[in-house]
């Protein structure tokens, strides 16, 4: 029996990619001085750290410190997402090719790209001298980065709409503004809202991290406990963060599902 083979060019591509991956990882491992010994020893070392975290520090004092910080991260993420959503919404119309004039769309897109290039932590550095150490700094950093990412995603949603309703509005004498409010917005709103929620999930993780540079949130607490070698309390911080993120993710995912797929009709 003759089994058809993949074309030669495909096979060459496949093998060269495999070699590239193997050489790449070996080269990187050598460059970073990662030896087999270290890899084999890592599980034991991680085990020691995890072991040191248990039993968790469940004292009242620990919770009094940690819980407000965990919620601070939640507030930073939410407020940052709201800032991102409010500002990115009009901007995304300017960035969409089918709504704005060519040059406006291209410039706006470049501005959004430039904003996205700065990680939240770097933005936090920029805001620290203005807003000081605290959650406000984190919120601004998260918010501005979200404008970049949400603006890009939303403008892509707007570019993907069905032009039919727009034509219908135009032919019945509607203005450009009518077109936007009756033609574009109803079409894009569900997807854009779900992107906002999705961004909120990402921002929650980002805001947890921001504490490392003093921009508020639970990251500060974790890095302090790890520095002071108070591992049981670090473990509590970690567990509290996991619970918060899991809960927020679950709720947000449920709402997104409901928005995109609509009401489940029981038959």
């Amino acid at each position: 029996m003759k089994i058809p083979q993949q074309p030669l060019s495909q096979r060459i591509l496949k093998y060269s990619l495999t070699t590239l991956i193997i050489i790449g990882s070996l080269w990187s491992a050598a460059g970073l001085e990662i030896t087999l010994e270290r890899i084999l020893d890592a599980p034991r070392q991680i085990g020691i750290l995890v072991g040191a975290m248990f039993p968790l520090d469940l004292s009242q004092e620990a919770f009094d410190r940690i819980i407000p910080k965990v919620f601070e991260s939640l507030f930073i993420a939410w407020a940052g997402t709201v800032i991102g959503a409010i500002f990115s919404f009009p901007v995304s119309f300017l960035a969409a090719q089918n709504v704005a004039v060519g040059i406006v769309s291209r410039t706006t897109k470049q501005i959004l790209n430039a904003i996205r290039a700065f990680p939240e932590l770097i933005l936090a550095f920029v805001f620290l001298p203005i807003t000081g150490l605290g959650p406000f700094t984190g919120t601004l950093a998260v918010g501005i980065h979200s404008i970049g990412t949400l603006g890009k995603l939303s403008s892509e949603v707007i570019e993907g709409i069905d032009e039919g309703p727009l034509e219908a509005i135009k032919s019945s004498g509607g203005s450009k503004l009518n077109e936007l409010s009756f033609g574009v917005i109803p079409q894009v709103m569900p997807t854009i809202t779900s992107y906002w929620l999705y961004r909120f999930e990402i921002n929650l993780r980002a805001s947890a991290v921001l504490g490392v540079v003093g921009a508020g949130g639970v990251g500060q607490e974790l890095i302090n406990q790890l520095r002071f070698r108070d591992f049981p309390r670090a473990g509590t911080v970690l567990i509290c963060t996991i619970i918060l993120v899991l809960t927020a993710d679950t709720i947000s995912a449920a709402i997104r599902n409901r928005i995109i797929k609509g009401k489940v009709v029981k038959s």
Partner: peptide, 21 residues
Amino acid sequence: RTIPDLFWAMLFTVAVGIGPF
């Protein structure tokens, strides 16, 4: 997935030492 990347990094620097590993 719930643990942010920098949290992993903090934990691993404590566990296996500071450095690229």
